[in-house]
Design a protein around this nucleic acid. Sequence first.
DNA 1: ATGCGGCATGATGTATGCAAGGTGCCGACC
DNA 2: GGTCGGCACCTTGCATACATCATGCCGCAT
Lengths: 243, 243
Amino acid sequence: MTTFAKPFVVSPALADPAERAARRRPGPTRAETLATGLAEAITDGRLPPGTTLEEERLAAAHGVSRTPVREALRLLAATGLVEQRPRRGAVVARPEPGRLAEMFQAMAELEAICASLCAVALSRADKARLASQHATMGRIVEDGWLDAYRDANVSFHEAIYAGCGNGYLAEMADATRRRLAPFRAAQLGGRDRLAASHAEHGAIVAAIQAGDAAAAAAAVRAHLAATEWSWGVLAGQPPIRLG
Amino acid sequence: MTTFAKPFVVSPALADPAERAARRRPGPTRAETLATGLAEAITDGRLPPGTTLEEERLAAAHGVSRTPVREALRLLAATGLVEQRPRRGAVVARPEPGRLAEMFQAMAELEAICASLCAVALSRADKARLASQHATMGRIVEDGWLDAYRDANVSFHEAIYAGCGNGYLAEMADATRRRLAPFRAAQLGGRDRLAASHAEHGAIVAAIQAGDAAAAAAAVRAHLAATEWSWGVLAGQPPIRLG
DNA sequence: ATGCGGCATGATGTATGCAAGGTGCCGACC
DNA sequence: GGTCGGCACCTTGCATACATCATGCCGCAT
């Protein structure tokens, strides 16, 4: 767990102006706007898993035609946040329990890799930044401020993703976390769990600061194994209609 | 590298008839057919990276209207195989070299995890099956049959993905491999590389059969580190028009 | 009463038309 | 001669209309 395929650079970066221009991204289309909005609504819990997403209704609600709605749904379907059954419409994804378990395990492994890479790749300054972020969360725990901790928690984990120095890996981890978000909304329930979570974060940070990749991976697995129990109860809820 | 978040089951599987019916997937739509066809063409190398994909041309070529073409392109864009620039059309994805390196590293790590899981999760019978698959490839190497080895190689790696017992992880690994396929088309060039590849596979199989997760992961990383040099040459090729 | 088959309904899948934005070319100006 | 500005063409984005299929109800036969 200490050696990785090195992230070397293969050929000179394509930096000529034509290439730059060709990669420029003009303003987002309605479909993309819709997709990001719906994605947020799903991860936030405003659109619970199982909610049916009727094209016409969504189109009317957002003042557009069905075409961009369809494209947004396609986009989200490919992301995994919604499930499209041909000719039977789309619903907010509600993976079977077994698949949820797989996703959770995958997230743990992805995050373990990211933490390992952080341990060996992060600069001293960045490690210090991570530690200070962790310290801030400690103060939030002392205040018992649940909502703030939830947000800070996401930031903390995203910092680990981003810090691994591999954007592709970070995106996969982040996507997985987002797909699991609807099923974790009710967690971090008790104050003791809050403190425990923070302590586990501490172990991760310590391992990263020490540059110990294996310990970082183990700490991440322990952390996620400790939280996994809490989302199972939501797995079997019935479909809910979009009002 | 020896403990994992366990893939336990959270609640009884949703097996009631209504649920089953609701998850049934009727026949594929034109958009999906197109998407799979284009995806194959891209990974096969028939549509090289940088190829511009004009909607109307594709529509005419496949005898459909622009609408399903657009949806197929959206689907592929979310998969990462094509890149969509709003109002500027779609092209077959041509990641920058740095991103290719990231993807390759990510694939190595994903595959390392899969191999580790194989080592601890695969049944004795399945391990034997994997070994026999490997033995078959040995015969192909002796014959120097390049094309057959290429196909068998894909099957071998997919067997490792599938064998890890985590479908989600397997899908991510497979998707990453497919996205990298266009940039690896010209590899496995020499006969010596063929034999070396087979030997590296042997190390992986041996570690899996021994149940040694750490060794399996290391063997996978070594294998992929040995092949990575060969695809860089394709990274900087210019855009190609679809004829 | 129960099961089955046909039909109405309403959704999605597809095609087409229109409008807006981008690209490339050409000419004028410096 | 080089560069900037305007224009025409082409492609994409979006809206609308039609075709197709899943679903649920209702009536009929058993």
